[in-house]
Amino acid sequence: MTAPTTPRIAIIGAGPGGLTCARILQRHGATVTVYDLDADRTSRNQGGTLDMQPGSGQVALRAAGLMDEFAKHSRPEGQQMRLLGRDAAVRFDALPSEAAKGEGNPEIDRGQLRDLLLDSLAPGTVHWGHRLTHAEPLGDGAHRLHFAHGATAETGLVIGADGAWSRVRRLLSAAQPGYTGVTFVEAGLNDAGTRHPALAALTGDGTMMALDDNHGLIAQRNSDQHIRIYIGMRTHEDWHRRAGVDLADTDTMRAHLLERFTGWNEQLLGLITATDTGYINRPLYALPVPHTWSHAPGVTILGDAAHLMSPFSGMGANLAMLDAADLAHAINGTPTVDGAVRTYEEIMLPRSVEAARGAAEGLDSAFAPDSAQQALAHMSENH
């Protein structure tokens, strides 16, 4: 067992929110340590692409002093939004204007964003291979952190940026994520422009959605000619067990998914059949709305730990990073840690409740009997 350490601030989770908070705190001279369960920075694929929004993600990146680095990796063309019918006919196609490319929501891969943030931190800030088991209150806001491999650390403030199944959240709330009723099955196309040119053209430069009658096919451009695909279904959480489908059996998965999308255009079905990456089952979970808690000394949470919501909010990582910036600014500008956390929570909680309600409504409209009509009306109104 290693000897306890006493960092002033401990952040649990090295995702966009946790790393953004650490970066801004360090810029203002605060002592901060980040603990993450991953073995190292390369041990896990970080997922798809993110649009960094001017009023949230970009605000946080500016506070972190990283907008110039972000611009080197971002893809303004990724703002294209395309809606197709199940017949593959284009219902809506919004290309970003030159002005929007400079001022809108440019895309960046999650992995690139994480690397950008990690590289901005002081060496040794992130302690890899630290899976938090529980945080033990010691009184007066102090906590002892217990990790799975036996190490402990003591801290004056623990910040939970540890995602959907947050251990830190347990200090504040008994709430647990619940199944939303919608599951995504992830697939992917590698070297799409060369190996899958028709599907690449169908997708465009940004995000393509085909939604109809509680089903959807969503294709999302990533860097390096990769297209990430989400095969969406309103279904039971254990749909595969009910159908007798082995999630590890690619052929059986393909056949079952094709059966669920009977009647869809053959070209769209290519997004199911042509996968180079197999199939990954991803049921969508969300925290109850509203999710709030009473203030407790020495602990707070941000991002998915505080307000896990469906990806149809478009706000997940953006909101986590804005949370991080608001919390870091409060810590840097408030005489006491307790006062800083109160200030942060007074800002964050109402905002997150509103966003979570919008996310739930967005998911319900995207996976509904008349989802195609609802999606068209929404896109036409907002572009």
Rank of each mutant, 00 (worst) to 15 (best):
T2I: 09
T2S: 15
I11W: 04
G17Y: 02
G17N: 06
G18R: 04
T20A: 01
I24Y: 08
V32K: 04
T33Y: 00
T33M: 02
D36V: 02
S43Q: 04
G48W: 14
Q53L: 15
P54C: 02
P54F: 01
L61S: 10
G65W: 05
M67A: 08
D68F: 01
E69S: 13
E69L: 07
H73E: 10
A89W: 07
D93T: 06
E103Q: 15
E103N: 15
D109L: 12
Q112W: 12
R114S: 10
L117G: 13
L118G: 07
D119F: 09
L121C: 04
A122I: 08
G124C: 15
H127F: 10
W128P: 07
R131N: 13
T133N: 04
T133L: 04
P137G: 14
L138E: 09
G139H: 11
D140L: 06
A148E: 05
A151W: 03
A153N: 07
E154M: 08
T155Y: 06
D162F: 06
D162C: 00
R167D: 06
V168S: 05
V168F: 01
R170P: 01
L172Y: 05
G178D: 12
Y179T: 11
T183W: 02
A192H: 03
G193Y: 14
R195M: 14
R195A: 15
R195Q: 15
A200V: 00
L202R: 09
G204R: 00
G206S: 01
T207R: 07
L217R: 04
L217P: 03
I218F: 10
S223C: 10
W239P: 01
R241F: 08
A243R: 13
G244K: 10
V245C: 10
D251P: 03
T252N: 11
H256G: 07
R260P: 11
F261W: 09
L271I: 11
T273Y: 00
D276Y: 01
T277V: 08
L287H: 05
P288A: 08
P290V: 03
H291V: 05
H291F: 00
T292I: 05
H295P: 06
P297V: 07
G298S: 03
A305W: 02
M309F: 00
S310E: 06
S310D: 07
S313I: 07
A320E: 09
I331S: 04
G333P: 08
P335C: 02
P335G: 05
P350V: 04
S352Y: 02
V353L: 08
E354T: 10
E354V: 07
G358H: 09
A366W: 09
A372N: 11
A375L: 08
H378D: 13
M379V: 11
H383W: 15
